[in-house]
């Protein structure tokens, strides 16, 4: 059985971080899995997790009176969740497993402490998070144009 610290370098999000940093971060992490349909987090709940998805797909949803709208999906090779980083640390959306999901869950409070204590690590970590945020913002903005829609 490989440890989390041994597994992390294989994930694109952690590419370029040295083994000391990874060991430090792994201290905040546990492995988890979710069954299809199971919620990883719910809108309004305290956000205390950062997910690194190793297998499966998670839908980021918003509940409507008529059902749920999927705003985005994250899957194998991607990460999910930055609400743990931004006060008041509350989930803005639901996160629901579309199929069987295996992930590494990092404790948000633990990550914040490690980043605060080691600014170099904190900067490297934030840089990666911002890249994810930027991609998701880009995707949201372009989709706002409804390019494939009726003009």
């Amino acid at each position: 059985m490989r440890t989390i610290a041994e597994d992390l370098p294989g994930h694109p999000f952690f590419a370029g971080l040295d083994s000391d940093a990874l060991a430090l971060l792994a201290g905040c992490a546990v492995n988890m899995h979710a069954r299809p349909g199971e919620y990883l987090f719910r809108e309004g709940e305290p956000a205390d997790s950062f997910f690194v998805i190793r297998e499966g797909r998670v839908a980021l949803e918003m509940r409507l009176p008529t059902g749920a709208a999927v705003l985005d999906t994250a899957e194998q090779g991607e990460v999910l969740g930055w609400s743990w980083l931004v006060p008041p640390y509350r989930w803005t959306f639901d996160g629901r497993a579309v199929d069987h999901v295996r992930a590494v869950r990092f404790d948000g409070g633990c990550l914040r402490e490690k980043c605060a204590a080691d600014p170099d690590l904190g900067y490297a970590f934030l840089q990666r998070i911002v890249q994810v945020m930027s991609q998701r913002l880009h995707s949201a903005r372009v989709r706002l144009l409804d390019l494939y829609g009726a003009s």
């Binding site: 899957e75 372009v142 989709r143």
Partner: peptide
Amino acid sequence: VDRSDDSWRGPVGLVTGLVDR
């Protein structure tokens, strides 16, 4: 797809988001 419906279990997002895979 840009917007999903109840039948959809695949990815939701911009097509450029698929390039990395």
